[in-house]
Design a protein around this nucleic acid. Sequence first.
DNA 1: AACGTGACCCTAG
DNA 2: ACTAGGGCCACGT
Length: 130
Amino acid sequence: MKKPASPPPGQTTPAPERNYFADVHEVVRLVPPGRVTSYGAVAHYLGATRGARAVGYALMASNLDAITHQKEAPVPAHRVVNRLGQLSGRHHFPTPTAMQERLEAEGVRVEDDTVVDFKKLYWDPSVELG
DNA sequence: AACGTGACCCTAG
DNA sequence: ACTAGGGCCACGT
């Protein structure tokens, strides 16, 4: 077998198959309705405090996947906002107002594309889940 | 294989 | 207190 790669430990991707997509998918899915979390919190829970970007990327993929499958959003991406509580990803939703609409539907007040009482509704997986 | 992009976060002046 | 810049992670071409 010409398996050239014997990836030494400590290189990129320490975990064997840490599918960021599936990982984020699962964490966000655990976010209860009426609560909101941030990309950084999810990233931190995954172990990468600075991987918040990848979290957003994975979320987009999962959301688009759901749309492609024409099913209900398996991942409540609308409950994920940036560290400032702003709906930075609202522009990437099927509709520019889908995120806010969904949040308000769950009782989350949104003003000026920003979650009201974001700190109060904040849901940290590292804290809630441990 | 390398460069560039992106729903971000943190540190420094 | 505010503004500016750099950095990390993953994916596409």
